[in-house]
Design a binder for these strands. Sequence first.
DNA 1: GCCGATCAGTTGTATATACGGCTAGCCCTG
DNA 2: CAGGGCTAGCCGTATATACAACTGATCGGC
Lengths: 243, 243
Amino acid sequence: MSDGTAVPDFTPRYYAIEQALRARIAELAPNDPLPSEAELSQEFGVSRMTARAAVTRLVSEGLVYRQSGRGTFVAAPPTRRRADSLIRFSQEMRRQGRQPSSQVVEVVRRGATPAETGRLRLPRNAGVIAIHRVRLADQTPVAVEHAVFPGKLAPLLDMDLANGSLHEALVTLGHVPTLGHATLSAANAGTTEAQLLRVETGAALLVERRLILDQDGKPLELTESRYVGDRYALDVTFDVQHP
Amino acid sequence: MSDGTAVPDFTPRYYAIEQALRARIAELAPNDPLPSEAELSQEFGVSRMTARAAVTRLVSEGLVYRQSGRGTFVAAPPTRRRADSLIRFSQEMRRQGRQPSSQVVEVVRRGATPAETGRLRLPRNAGVIAIHRVRLADQTPVAVEHAVFPGKLAPLLDMDLANGSLHEALVTLGHVPTLGHATLSAANAGTTEAQLLRVETGAALLVERRLILDQDGKPLELTESRYVGDRYALDVTFDVQHP
DNA sequence: GCCGATCAGTTGTATATACGGCTAGCCCTG
DNA sequence: CAGGGCTAGCCGTATATACAACTGATCGGC
């Protein structure tokens, strides 16, 4: 293994198996089963751990998923959204002909962290409402979401967060989500969120950290959404800047 | 390991080691060395493969990087860009006080693929110029880039692509990059690009597939940039859409 | 003083083995 | 006929071992 070498002349066994499986996956439909690790080790004449390493790489790219005790299956392709327009997740899913739903992982009222105090422009020692959810399309997890609201929005706690719309709730409370700023990056899924998202630990996530302001320009919501890279995409239109 | 369980009560040994290393990494500077796999296996009383699994997860999240024969080191933090404004990579790096550079991996004149023919609105059997580069900041790879141009832009082949600016070259040829559309997602680094980017295979990449149009609205460039998630971020401003 | 060879230490790849926990299907019993 | 238990097969975690390849430091010879 060398740095900077574009194409090594040596190909690890796990890599060759990985490429062979990629070709097969292209011919299969989502949720179709793949050969087990034992079957692959027999087929390719390698140890189970080497076959497993090959599959692990496909898992981490979101091409397949594993279920303990069941097997390895082809994963579904991603969904997309325009980045300069935030619409409700469920509205967007329906627009794409998919069935949206949410799983609430945790809702808690707690003190704001210093970073949250700054971003949300809260007074010192203010409280916040923190809502942790998994967003699903057709029963497939697409994103985990951590949303933080100023404590004055405590009536959100009484809302039906699994079935209702957070944004409609905010409008009802007199705060219309109007403008936002987001930072987009990528990260690998940690163990806990990998389980929530039903992906392998290490899978690539599109990470959106956004601040939403209301009609008066006041911060309303500080949210981090972590989308499974192979199940979600954002569309952007931009100008090309010249010096 | 169960689906949907937020916090397992069983903690794998590799996971505990991973978390301990995360805490240490927070106290170190980029490029500082971490203990070797052998040292970690002694320190935590596990096999080298288990210690290695823990480090592999940190590598795949971009927190550390490995070099065969040398060791494991703390990785540098990411860079950022506004998504609604595309500026030249090198201009943006300088704006952030960093030293930009490029490594040309390959420049080739070839026939367009059907997808490229469609996106670039080329006539049938048209040729294209394909340029494959690694973009670096302070000698650290930040992105790999595959740019495809219509064949009529063949004079690009004569440009100094490692040191010069592609966009300035385009302006010289009478085509001013003006507007673009991009799709953003995340993917895990494959083996070859992982080597080019000096990250572990499987590291999360922020993937931007963009089409740039010239001043007349004609397609000029079809590019896929794959940014190391922990070395790069995009900023977006958006409106919140209501039903 | 410089260069080449060697060695120690590092990561990379691979195998074999073992046990735990989960799932689903099948069979037996009530 | 339904439910419960058992089993086979699956993935998850872990260990031990071995060899390959790379890097950098040191030492010896010229």
